[in-house]
Amino acid sequence: MKNIDSKTAWNDGDVQSIVGRLLRYGVVTASVVAFLGGIAYLIHHGKNAIPDYGHFVGQEEAFITIKGIFHGALNLEPTEIIQLGILILVATPILRVLSSLVAFTLEKDRLYICITLIVLCIIMVSIFGGIKG
């Protein structure tokens, strides 16, 4: 905003266009991966009876750790491919916050670099803080 007269400086328009595009690519990628996983899942398990979703059991290790999801997806396990899609979907808004951090840095907006870092820290605590209970 304040660098409006300088041609090389970043402005809000650039930031908005990058942020907007990132969100769309993330969602498209996640949907495609989940769709492919879903097709594979239906081919392999489509004829089976549905699991008892009325009782909550939580998940097996493979579904809930990044390592487990990647390992399973690399072995083309349908359920882990779907979980990989979920992982990409959840990562998209987090990447958006990261891209805002880059953008505010380019704009040299110190206040908003701090604010963005605080948001990132909270999310990191949520991921790695062991608060799943």
Partner: peptide, 9 residues
């Protein structure tokens, strides 16, 4: 483990 692949996709 709230996110079940069979329901999610």
């Amino acid at each position: 483990g709230y996110m079940d692949p069979g329901i999610a996709f």
